[in-house]
């Protein structure tokens, strides 16, 4: 092979069911299809050579050429890369999310600038599942959250819980024990993570809420490695990235959800959708956290409010109905 790329992913190898490592595999296959097999890959899946946040450095200093990780682990280095994580109750259709993300990337060059500052370039932004709940008791109304503890991670999720619910911030690996011992009764994760952490063995109610647009599993390439490639190869790298996004959105994720649902149902899990009217009430009861975020990144020189506005408008134009408007400048 003409090009040898070392690739590291924080996700398990693609043969582990519903691993986002699949997206990296698709990208690699497509790249070789487009270039007639010019690439050879050496893969390190499952965060075996570093933890999540370290993957940014691994690819930035070219310990590996390509890394699949999550830039918003370090929000200070990629302040606006996590914009979809800031907006509660976003769209859950992965095809729509991919389209909107591409427009966002075209509209705001600051995204690429931040990547270049960190010596990387994002070549694919494949969507993952949206954030839903699994719980010991059914969740039908906001009342059902009262007095409950919910395990979750991240900066804002805790503030999006309905009134009376308590956030217990804990990493993925702890969720099984938390639910098993009854420290919490509700878990917040995308379906892929519910599947991976096996919490469906313990709690039997799956409630689709779409608390946030799908999570990301972004693929980054070392900037220098990319710039050294001839233009037609660069084009293929990016094109393979787009194909990986489309395939994940159009084929892989829906198929995964179907088999996940079948498997969960076999284990006795009941699926339901949280009523839209309740979501509306819920959204109205929350503070405008996105506006806080926007003000914060504006202070750093980013057009925070414009980004929120653009994302909401773009997704709305593509057919998504927001429960309310977020990111209103005071």
């Amino acid at each position: 092979a003409e090009y040898k790329l070392r690739c590291a992913s924080i996700y398990p190898a693609p043969d582990v069911p519903m691993s986002m490592g699949k997206a990296l595999q698709i990208w690699q296959e497509e790249l070789n299809r487009l270039t007639g097999g010019k690439f050879a890959f050496e893969n390190f899946y499952g965060a075996t050579i570093g933890k999540g946040p370290e993957h940014i450095d691994l690819v930035g200093n070219r310990t590996v050429d390509v890394a699949q990780t999550f830039p918003w682990y370090t929000p200070g280095r990629f302040p606006i890369h996590g914009v979809t994580y800031v907006l509660p109750f976003g769209p859950s259709d992965p095809v729509l999310i991919v389209k909107a993300n591409r427009q966002l990337r075209e509209k705001f060059p600051q995204l690429v600038e931040d990547e270049k500052k960190n010596k990387v370039l994002l070549i694919s932004d494949p969507p993952g599942g949206v954030y839903d709940f699994m719980s010991r008791k059914p969740l039908r109304t906001l009342e059902d959250f009262k007095g409950e503890k919910v395990s979750l991670v991240g900066r804002y999720f805790g503030r999006w819980l309905p009134p009376g619910a308590t956030a217990v911030v804990r990493p993925m690996h702890d969720r099984y024990e938390l639910l098993q011992n009854g420290v919490v009764n509700i878990d917040l994760h995308p379906f892929t993570h519910f599947h991976f952490t096996k919490v469906y063995e313990l709690v039997k109610y799956y409630t689709s809420v779409g608390l946030m647009a799908g999570f990301h599993s972004q693929i980054l390439i070392n900037l220098e490695a990319f710039q050294k490639m001839p233009p037609e190869i660069q084009k293929a790298v990016l094109e393979a990235g787009r194909i990986a996004e489309d395939k994940m959105a159009q084929e892989v994720l829906p198929a995964w959800f179907k088999s996940c649902q079948a498997e969960f149902e076999k284990a006795g899990v009941q699926f339901s959708k949280f009523p839209a009217a309740e979501i509306k009430k819920w959204a109205d009861s929350l503070e405008d956290v996105p506006a806080e975020w926007a003000a914060e990144v504006e202070a750093k020189g980013y057009p925070g409010f414009a980004i929120l506005e653009f994302w909401q408008k773009t997704t709305a134009d593509l057919g998504f109905q927001w429960a309310r408007k977020w990111g209103v400048k005071k």
Partner: peptide
């Protein structure tokens, strides 16, 4: 130098 903060509910610096 970049005031790198953690992805946490309160502001914590790496």
């Amino acid at each position: 130098s970049i005031r790198e903060d953690m992805l946490a509910a309160v502001r914590l610096m790496w």
